[in-house]
Nucleic acid binder design. Sequence first.
DNA 1: TTCCAGGAACGAG
DNA 2: CTCGTTCCTGGA
Length: 293
Amino acid sequence: MSDIKVTEQNNKIILEGVHDFDPVHTFECGQCFRWNREQDGSYTGVAFSKVINLKKDGDIVIVDNCCLADFQSIWHDYFDFGRNYGIIKEALSQSDPVMEKAVRFGHGIRILNQDEWETIISFILSQNRSIPIIKQSIEAICRKYGSFIGTYRNREYYAFPTPEALAQRTAEELADCKAGYRAKYVVETAKAVLQAKDIGTYRQLDSGEIENRLLGFSGVGPKVANCIMLFSMKKTERFPVDVWIKRIMAFLYPDNCRNENSISKYAAEKYGQYGGFAQQYLFYYARENSIGR
DNA sequence: TTCCAGGAACGAG
DNA sequence: CTCGTTCCTGGA
């Protein structure tokens, strides 16, 4: 288990001894869409119908608007605090010099364990768009179809809508939420998820089986399926191949990484069980440094 | 103005 | 099955 010291005071949680965690790295590496930076450098976000604010201050992390019970039942797992990233980073750093740099650059990345349903819809909405637009679209949908949670720092927060709430909509109604042609996929997938009923148990299945099921949802292709498995089902070997990954892999390994399939194959051989972590370090490094553009 | 963005569906060959 | 085209729409 982790050696984090947790204390509670005044609706705040103080964490001491947290290693390998920086909110900037974790929230800006493309895995989540509902965390926003505040003026003071802290981050406020919504997940599991709760709003919290995180601020890293030297060696301690302050979690505001959070009680001890919620931290233990929700956030400890959400932030993957039970996992030792030191071992992963050391292993990846030895794979090659560029990965070593990428790991050092994004040393505070943790892979979040997000809600499956929210992750499915969020990544369906992500296709063919940049992150700021994706965030706008998701916020619009939450504001319109999600339940009101409360106000924090003078801003109103809404939960991610339930499958029932979205399944009742038509694609035309979702058009107001800047979903574009993806609106149809969202409604169809919401209905399919209601039929399936058990997406919360998918993570117990074999990765290949999960992938087959996810690819059956409208608007879910190989890249989105890998993101869902990695960011909400703990399938940490999954290596989503997006345009940034294509760019940096082609730049780093021009001989072995010509197309999507060769990249996936090469990553599987090179990073194995740590593929998902490797993808996040590379993505953040490539994007923040505009590598391959 | 024009072009493209952190992909997937679809039809043609 | 593999490949090329098309799909909203905001922002550079």
